[in-house]
Simulated assay, not measured.
Amino acid sequence: MHQTPPPLPRLLLIEDDLISRSFLQTALEALPAQVDCAETLKGALDCAGQHDYALWLIDVNLPDGRGSDLLEQLRRYHPLTPALAHTADTCDALARQLRDDGFENVLVKPLSRESLLRSVRAALPPVATDLQALPAWDEARALSALNGQQAHIKALRDLFMGELPSVRDAIAQALRDEDRGQLQQQLHRLQASCGFVGAARLGAAAAQLQQQPENPAARASLTQAIHQLLLN
């Protein structure tokens, strides 16, 4: 039976400044994640009424109110959703107040892409997908990716399996070095390759580790998925 990888986390970004919103949205989509945007309290409440979100990123000052007031309203309906505040204000007293108001962390703009993603990953709920429910090899997905060319699947899988030990070692090295850029690059390439050859379980594990590279469970899941394929 054809099974798909777990869906991307859905995030709600509330930011009224166009330049800041464009930067934040582009960076967040690289998690990878699905990002919805709102510019006002009203827009954010409308979005929250239509979708469930894994995380809210809320500007402290909005055209129609305060970020803390928005968080209070959102929490009436979604009490467990984590939230990050973002602001250009560097005042320590404000940061303490925002945490008291219920924000997990306060991001000070301008901030780097890596700093943003690190904070978002730390705030996202832990990985909970049962990877063992996915097949090691998904024939239907591989055939779809290769336009039904059955003969190409074996050739590509042989190449994929031949390169997998070196990919495993490169990912392990990136984790040891805490090289987030190299890690994300390796995981992105691995996830794409898994899609072509139908390595469903490993592809899902790579996607999870992309989202939460510091999560021990996600790291263990990737190691196990690679080991299982190499043993077959």
Rank of each mutant, 00 (worst) to 15 (best):
E15C: 09
P5F: 02
E114K: 09
R176P: 02
Q224S: 14
A33V: 12
G162A: 01
L24Y: 04
H188E: 07
P7Y: 06
L111W: 00
K154I: 14
A128N: 15
L18E: 13
A207Y: 06
L70C: 04
L156H: 06
L12G: 04
P125N: 11
D101T: 02
L131V: 09
A205N: 08
L11W: 01
A199P: 06
R96P: 00
T129V: 14
S115T: 12
G195Q: 02
L62M: 06
R141C: 10
L164M: 01
E214R: 15
L111Q: 03
L74M: 01
D100E: 13
L84R: 07
N105M: 13
A123R: 09
P32A: 05
A200F: 05
Q132P: 06
L55E: 03
A95V: 02
L116E: 03
L156A: 10
G49S: 10
V120T: 12
Q211A: 14
S115D: 12
P6H: 13
A220M: 11
L164C: 01
Q224P: 03
R99I: 13
F23S: 04
R121G: 14
C47Y: 08
Q97N: 01
M161A: 02
L94Q: 08
L229E: 02
P7H: 03
Q182P: 00
I19Q: 09
Q182W: 00
D17K: 14
R157F: 01
L31M: 10
L131C: 08
Q25C: 14
L222I: 08
Q97A: 10
Q210R: 13
L28V: 08
T90P: 00
R96D: 11
A133R: 14
A220P: 10
F23N: 06
T129H: 13
E72S: 11
G198P: 03
A122K: 15
L94F: 01
T90E: 00
A48D: 03
S221V: 12
V108N: 03
Q208H: 09
L190Y: 04
A128S: 15
W56C: 05
A174L: 04
A145S: 12
Q73N: 00
E178I: 09
I14W: 05
S20F: 07
E163S: 10
Q97R: 12
L71R: 07
G43W: 03
V197T: 03
M1F: 11
L164K: 02
D169Q: 15
I153C: 07
D169I: 05
P5I: 13
S119W: 10
A225E: 09
A93E: 12
D92Q: 14
P216V: 10
Q212A: 14
G148C: 11
A54R: 15
L156F: 09
D17Y: 11
A136V: 14
R176A: 13
D52M: 08
A123T: 07
T90L: 00
I58Q: 04
M161N: 00
R121K: 04
A122G: 15
L124V: 10
I14R: 01
L190H: 02
L190I: 08
A38D: 05
N215W: 13
L45F: 08
L31W: 02
L84S: 05
L175R: 14
L18M: 09
A54L: 08
L111R: 01
A170P: 07
Q184A: 12
Q173N: 12
K42L: 10
L143Y: 05
L229P: 00
I226T: 07
Q73T: 08
S119Y: 07
R76D: 09
D64N: 01
P6K: 11
L18C: 08
L71T: 01
A151E: 13
D92C: 09
A83H: 07
I19H: 12
